[in-house]
Protein backbone atom coordinates (compact mmCIF):
# COMPACT_ATOMS: atom_id res chain seq x y z
CA UNK A 1 0.00 0.00 0.00
CA UNK A 2 2.87 2.24 0.87
CA UNK A 3 4.45 1.59 -2.53
CA UNK A 4 1.24 2.40 -4.40
CA UNK A 5 0.82 5.61 -2.46
CA UNK A 6 4.38 6.62 -3.28
CA UNK A 7 3.80 5.77 -6.89
CA UNK A 8 0.77 8.05 -7.19
CA UNK A 9 2.10 10.82 -4.96
CA UNK A 10 3.61 12.82 -7.85
CA UNK A 11 0.13 13.09 -9.38
CA UNK A 12 -0.76 15.49 -6.58
CA UNK A 13 1.34 18.09 -8.35
CA UNK A 14 -0.14 19.92 -11.31
CA UNK A 15 3.16 20.12 -13.21
CA UNK A 16 3.45 16.33 -13.06
CA UNK A 17 -0.12 15.74 -14.22
CA UNK A 18 0.38 18.16 -17.08
CA UNK A 19 3.64 16.47 -18.00
CA UNK A 20 2.06 13.00 -18.08
CA UNK A 21 -0.91 14.17 -20.16
CA UNK A 22 1.26 16.06 -22.64
CA UNK A 23 3.87 13.30 -22.94
CA UNK A 24 1.15 10.71 -23.61
CA UNK A 25 -0.59 12.84 -26.22
CA UNK A 26 2.72 13.83 -27.83
CA UNK A 27 3.69 10.18 -28.18
CA UNK A 28 0.38 9.26 -29.77
CA UNK A 29 0.33 12.30 -32.05
CA UNK A 30 3.89 11.82 -33.29
CA UNK A 31 3.24 8.11 -33.79
CA UNK A 32 0.21 8.68 -36.01
CA UNK A 33 1.68 11.54 -38.05
CA UNK A 34 5.02 9.73 -38.26
CA UNK A 35 3.42 6.81 -40.14
CA UNK A 36 2.73 9.06 -43.13
CA UNK A 37 6.08 10.78 -42.82
CA UNK A 38 7.94 7.47 -42.97
CA UNK A 39 5.79 6.06 -45.78
CA UNK A 40 6.57 9.15 -47.85
CA UNK A 41 10.30 8.65 -47.33
CA UNK A 42 10.47 11.97 -45.48
CA UNK A 43 11.83 10.63 -42.20
CA UNK A 44 14.29 13.48 -41.89
CA UNK A 45 11.55 16.12 -42.02
CA UNK A 46 10.74 15.92 -38.30
CA UNK A 47 14.33 16.62 -37.43
CA UNK A 48 14.68 19.29 -40.07
CA UNK A 49 11.40 21.02 -39.29
CA UNK A 50 12.09 21.19 -35.59
CA UNK A 51 15.39 22.92 -36.39
CA UNK A 52 13.76 25.18 -38.97
CA UNK A 53 11.24 26.43 -36.41
CA UNK A 54 14.20 27.76 -34.44
CA UNK A 55 14.69 30.26 -37.29
CA UNK A 56 11.08 31.45 -36.88
CA UNK A 57 11.57 31.76 -33.14
CA UNK A 58 14.57 34.05 -33.65
CA UNK A 59 12.88 36.15 -36.35
CA UNK A 60 9.72 36.53 -34.25
CA UNK A 61 11.82 37.74 -31.31
CA UNK A 62 13.61 40.21 -33.52
CA UNK A 63 10.50 41.84 -34.97
CA UNK A 64 8.69 41.73 -31.63
CA UNK A 65 5.72 39.44 -32.25
CA UNK A 66 4.52 36.49 -30.19
CA UNK A 67 7.32 33.91 -30.27
CA UNK A 68 4.97 30.99 -30.43
CA UNK A 69 2.90 32.38 -33.29
CA UNK A 70 6.01 33.43 -35.18
CA UNK A 71 7.65 30.04 -34.82
CA UNK A 72 4.40 28.32 -35.78
CA UNK A 73 3.87 30.41 -38.91
CA UNK A 74 7.51 29.89 -39.87
CA UNK A 75 7.14 26.14 -39.44
CA UNK A 76 4.04 26.01 -41.63
CA UNK A 77 5.73 28.07 -44.36
CA UNK A 78 8.84 25.87 -44.20
CA UNK A 79 6.79 22.68 -44.41
CA UNK A 80 4.77 23.99 -47.35
CA UNK A 81 7.97 25.10 -49.08
CA UNK A 82 9.39 21.59 -48.70
CA UNK A 83 6.18 20.03 -49.99
CA UNK A 84 6.09 22.45 -52.93
CA UNK A 85 9.69 21.79 -53.92
CA UNK A 86 9.20 18.04 -53.72
CA UNK A 87 6.14 18.21 -55.98
CA UNK A 88 7.51 20.59 -58.59
CA UNK A 89 11.24 20.03 -58.76
CA UNK A 90 13.11 16.93 -59.82
CA UNK A 91 15.04 16.67 -56.57
CA UNK A 92 14.37 14.13 -53.87
CA UNK A 93 12.45 14.91 -50.69
CA UNK A 94 15.57 14.34 -48.59
CA UNK A 95 17.49 17.02 -50.50
CA UNK A 96 14.59 19.51 -50.29
CA UNK A 97 14.32 18.95 -46.53
CA UNK A 98 18.08 19.33 -46.10
CA UNK A 99 18.28 22.61 -48.01
CA UNK A 100 15.22 24.39 -46.60
CA UNK A 101 15.53 23.41 -42.95
CA UNK A 102 19.27 23.89 -42.54
CA UNK A 103 19.02 27.33 -44.14
CA UNK A 104 16.26 28.26 -41.71
CA UNK A 105 18.17 26.91 -38.71
CA UNK A 106 21.32 28.75 -39.77
CA UNK A 107 19.34 31.99 -40.05
CA UNK A 108 17.96 31.46 -36.54
CA UNK A 109 21.40 30.79 -35.04
CA UNK A 110 22.90 33.81 -36.77
CA UNK A 111 20.13 36.09 -35.48
CA UNK A 112 20.44 34.75 -31.92
CA UNK A 113 24.20 35.30 -32.05
CA UNK A 114 23.80 38.84 -33.37
CA UNK A 115 20.88 40.08 -31.28
CA UNK A 116 20.77 37.61 -28.41
CA UNK A 117 18.09 35.14 -27.35
CA UNK A 118 14.65 36.75 -27.79
CA UNK A 119 13.25 35.80 -24.39
CA UNK A 120 12.81 32.16 -23.47
CA UNK A 121 15.79 29.98 -22.96
CA UNK A 122 16.77 28.72 -26.40
CA UNK A 123 18.08 25.49 -24.82
CA UNK A 124 14.56 24.70 -23.66
CA UNK A 125 13.35 24.81 -27.26
CA UNK A 126 16.20 22.62 -28.43
CA UNK A 127 16.01 20.02 -25.67
CA UNK A 128 12.50 20.46 -24.22
CA UNK A 129 11.30 20.56 -20.62
CA UNK A 130 8.48 18.19 -19.83
CA UNK A 131 8.18 19.43 -16.23
CA UNK A 132 7.85 23.04 -17.31
CA UNK A 133 4.68 22.43 -19.30
CA UNK A 134 1.93 24.96 -18.76
CA UNK A 135 -1.82 24.58 -18.98
CA UNK A 136 -1.75 26.37 -22.35
CA UNK A 137 0.68 23.74 -23.68
CA UNK A 138 -1.76 21.01 -22.63
CA UNK A 139 -4.62 22.66 -24.50
CA UNK A 140 -2.47 23.27 -27.56
CA UNK A 141 -1.47 19.64 -27.85
CA UNK A 142 -5.06 18.52 -27.19
CA UNK A 143 -6.23 20.81 -30.00
CA UNK A 144 -3.57 19.54 -32.43
CA UNK A 145 -4.41 15.93 -31.50
CA UNK A 146 -8.10 16.55 -32.21
CA UNK A 147 -7.17 18.23 -35.51
CA UNK A 148 -4.98 15.26 -36.45
CA UNK A 149 -7.76 12.80 -35.57
CA UNK A 150 -10.29 14.71 -37.67
CA UNK A 151 -7.94 15.08 -40.64
CA UNK A 152 -6.84 11.45 -40.65
CA UNK A 153 -10.35 10.20 -39.87
CA UNK A 154 -12.15 12.11 -42.60
CA UNK A 155 -9.30 12.17 -45.10
CA UNK A 156 -7.96 8.68 -44.48
CA UNK A 157 -8.50 7.31 -47.97
CA UNK A 158 -7.31 10.47 -49.73
CA UNK A 159 -4.23 10.50 -47.52
CA UNK A 160 -3.54 6.81 -48.08
CA UNK A 161 -4.07 7.05 -51.85
CA UNK A 162 -1.92 10.17 -52.17
CA UNK A 163 0.83 8.62 -50.06
CA UNK A 164 0.79 5.35 -51.99
CA UNK A 165 0.42 6.65 -55.52
CA UNK A 166 0.19 10.43 -55.96
CA UNK A 167 -0.06 10.39 -59.75
CA UNK A 168 -2.94 7.93 -59.92
CA UNK A 169 -4.70 9.64 -57.04
CA UNK A 170 -4.49 12.94 -58.91
CA UNK A 171 -5.76 11.32 -62.11
CA UNK A 172 -8.67 9.80 -60.19
CA UNK A 173 -9.75 13.22 -58.93
CA UNK A 174 -8.17 13.41 -55.47
CA UNK A 175 -6.89 16.90 -54.66
CA UNK A 176 -3.38 15.72 -53.93
CA UNK A 177 -1.95 19.22 -53.54
CA UNK A 178 -4.47 20.00 -50.80
CA UNK A 179 -3.85 16.67 -49.06
CA UNK A 180 -0.08 17.19 -49.15
CA UNK A 181 -0.43 20.75 -47.90
CA UNK A 182 -2.71 19.77 -45.02
CA UNK A 183 -0.34 16.98 -43.99
CA UNK A 184 2.55 19.43 -43.96
CA UNK A 185 0.51 21.88 -41.85
CA UNK A 186 -0.39 19.07 -39.45
CA UNK A 187 3.24 18.03 -39.26
CA UNK A 188 4.45 21.53 -38.46
CA UNK A 189 1.65 21.94 -35.88
CA UNK A 190 2.76 18.65 -34.31
CA UNK A 191 6.36 19.79 -34.13
CA UNK A 192 5.35 23.15 -32.70
CA UNK A 193 3.00 21.68 -30.09
CA UNK A 194 5.51 19.09 -28.88
CA UNK A 195 8.60 21.26 -28.99
CA UNK A 196 8.29 22.52 -25.40
CA UNK A 197 7.79 18.97 -24.19
CA UNK A 198 10.41 16.99 -26.04
CA UNK A 199 12.75 19.41 -27.75
CA UNK A 200 13.83 19.15 -31.33
CA UNK A 201 15.95 16.02 -31.04
CA UNK A 202 13.31 13.82 -29.38
CA UNK A 203 10.65 15.02 -31.84
CA UNK A 204 12.62 13.54 -34.71
CA UNK A 205 12.97 10.23 -32.88
CA UNK A 206 9.30 10.21 -31.86
CA UNK A 207 8.14 10.80 -35.41
CA UNK A 208 10.28 8.16 -37.03
CA UNK A 209 10.99 5.32 -34.59
CA UNK A 210 7.40 4.19 -33.77
CA UNK A 211 6.45 4.24 -37.45
CA UNK A 212 9.53 2.26 -38.46
CA UNK A 213 8.89 -0.32 -35.73
CA UNK A 214 5.24 -0.60 -36.82
CA UNK A 215 6.31 -1.09 -40.40
CA UNK A 216 8.63 -3.91 -39.35
CA UNK A 217 5.88 -5.61 -37.38
CA UNK A 218 3.11 -5.58 -39.94
CA UNK A 219 2.75 -5.84 -43.67
CA UNK A 220 -0.73 -4.31 -43.59
CA UNK A 221 -1.89 -0.77 -43.23
CA UNK A 222 -4.71 -2.06 -41.06
CA UNK A 223 -4.73 -5.36 -39.16
CA UNK A 224 -6.40 -8.36 -40.75
CA UNK A 225 -9.25 -9.91 -38.74
CA UNK A 226 -8.00 -11.70 -35.66
CA UNK A 227 -9.59 -15.05 -36.52
CA UNK A 228 -7.90 -15.09 -39.90
CA UNK A 229 -4.54 -14.16 -38.43
CA UNK A 230 -4.81 -16.97 -35.95
CA UNK A 231 -5.60 -19.51 -38.65
CA UNK A 232 -2.79 -18.33 -40.88
CA UNK A 233 -0.40 -18.41 -37.95
CA UNK A 234 -1.31 -21.93 -36.94
CA UNK A 235 -0.95 -23.18 -40.45
CA UNK A 236 2.45 -21.56 -40.62
CA UNK A 237 3.40 -23.09 -37.34
CA UNK A 238 2.93 -26.68 -38.50
CA UNK A 239 6.51 -26.14 -39.42
CA UNK A 240 8.63 -28.31 -41.69
CA UNK A 241 5.94 -29.37 -44.14
CA UNK A 242 4.49 -25.96 -44.84
CA UNK A 243 7.31 -23.52 -44.29
CA UNK A 244 7.53 -20.78 -46.83
CA UNK A 245 10.67 -20.46 -48.99
CA UNK A 246 11.90 -17.65 -46.79
CA UNK A 247 11.56 -19.70 -43.65
CA UNK A 248 13.92 -22.65 -43.64
CA UNK A 249 14.92 -25.46 -41.33
CA UNK A 250 18.60 -26.09 -41.73
CA UNK A 251 19.22 -29.84 -41.64
CA UNK A 252 22.77 -29.61 -40.24
CA UNK A 253 22.09 -28.09 -36.85
CA UNK A 254 18.29 -28.31 -36.92
CA UNK A 255 18.03 -24.60 -36.28
CA UNK A 256 15.19 -22.62 -37.68
CA UNK A 257 15.67 -19.33 -39.45
CA UNK A 258 13.15 -16.78 -40.54
CA UNK A 259 13.73 -13.66 -42.55
CA UNK A 260 12.10 -10.64 -41.03
CA UNK A 261 9.83 -9.58 -43.76
CA UNK A 262 10.54 -6.15 -45.08
CA UNK A 263 12.84 -5.17 -47.85
CA UNK A 264 15.64 -3.09 -46.44
CA UNK A 265 15.10 -4.28 -42.85
CA UNK A 266 15.99 -7.91 -43.06
CA UNK A 267 17.18 -9.24 -39.77
CA UNK A 268 17.47 -12.99 -39.58
CA UNK A 269 16.50 -14.90 -36.46
CA UNK A 270 18.28 -18.15 -35.78
CA UNK A 271 16.67 -20.20 -33.07
CA UNK A 272 17.32 -23.75 -31.95
CA UNK A 273 15.00 -26.53 -33.03
CA UNK A 274 12.34 -27.60 -32.29
CA UNK A 275 10.46 -24.73 -33.86
CA UNK A 276 10.72 -21.61 -31.76
CA UNK A 277 7.22 -20.54 -32.68
CA UNK A 278 5.67 -23.67 -31.21
CA UNK A 279 7.91 -23.67 -28.12
CA UNK A 280 7.31 -20.05 -27.32
CA UNK A 281 3.60 -20.25 -28.00
CA UNK A 282 2.47 -21.39 -24.52
CA UNK A 283 4.65 -18.73 -22.88
CA UNK A 284 3.19 -15.84 -24.85
CA UNK A 285 0.03 -13.95 -24.06
CA UNK A 286 -2.72 -14.20 -26.63
CA UNK A 287 -2.03 -10.64 -27.80
CA UNK A 288 1.71 -11.29 -28.23
CA UNK A 289 0.98 -14.51 -30.07
CA UNK A 290 -1.35 -12.80 -32.51
CA UNK A 291 1.12 -10.09 -33.36
CA UNK A 292 3.98 -12.53 -33.64
CA UNK A 293 2.12 -14.99 -35.81
CA UNK A 294 0.76 -12.26 -38.02
CA UNK A 295 4.31 -11.13 -38.66
CA UNK A 296 5.51 -14.63 -39.37
CA UNK A 297 2.58 -15.51 -41.56
CA UNK A 298 3.50 -12.72 -43.94
CA UNK A 299 6.96 -14.24 -44.47
CA UNK A 300 5.50 -16.41 -47.20
Amino acid sequence: MMLAADLFKPFEFEFFRNGVIVATLAGALCGVVGCYVVLRNMSYIGHGLSHAIFGGYAVAGLIGINLFLGAGAWGVITALAIGGIVRRRPIGSDAAIGVVTTASFALGLALVQLYGSPGQNADALLFGNVLGVTFADVWLIVAVSIGAALFIGFGYRQLLFTTFDTEVAKATGVRTGLVDGLLMVLLSATVLATMNVMGVTLIAANLVVPAVVARMLTAHHRPVPRRRRDRRGQRFCRHERELSPRCRVRPDDRSHSCDFLHRGVRCRWFVPSPCWHCCARPLMTRHMRMRRLDTLATCG
Binding site: L39, I152, G153, F154, Y156, R157, Q158, L160, F161, F164, D165, E167, V168, A169, T172, G173, V174, R215, T218, A219, H220, H221, R222, V224, H262, R263, G264
Partner: peptide
Amino acid sequence: HIDWSFPVTVAECVGMARARGLRTP
Protein backbone atom coordinates in the same frame (compact mmCIF):
# COMPACT_ATOMS: atom_id res chain seq x y z
CA HIS B 1 6.72 2.94 -60.14
CA ILE B 2 4.96 1.05 -57.35
CA ASP B 3 6.41 0.96 -53.84
CA TRP B 4 5.99 -2.77 -53.24
CA SER B 5 6.97 -2.54 -49.59
CA PHE B 6 4.04 -0.19 -48.89
CA PRO B 7 1.91 -1.88 -46.23
CA VAL B 8 -1.35 -2.51 -48.08
CA THR B 9 -3.27 -5.65 -48.89
CA VAL B 10 -4.98 -6.25 -52.23
CA ALA B 11 -8.39 -5.24 -50.80
CA GLU B 12 -6.98 -2.03 -49.32
CA CYS B 13 -5.18 -1.20 -52.55
CA VAL B 14 -8.40 -1.53 -54.51
CA GLY B 15 -10.55 0.14 -51.83
CA MET B 16 -8.39 3.25 -51.50
CA ALA B 17 -9.36 4.29 -55.03
CA ARG B 18 -12.83 5.35 -53.97
CA ALA B 19 -11.49 8.37 -52.15
CA ARG B 20 -13.43 11.35 -53.43
CA GLY B 21 -15.81 13.08 -51.04
CA LEU B 22 -16.43 12.15 -47.44
CA ARG B 23 -15.81 8.45 -46.88
CA THR B 24 -15.44 6.26 -43.85
CA PRO B 25 -11.80 5.44 -43.11
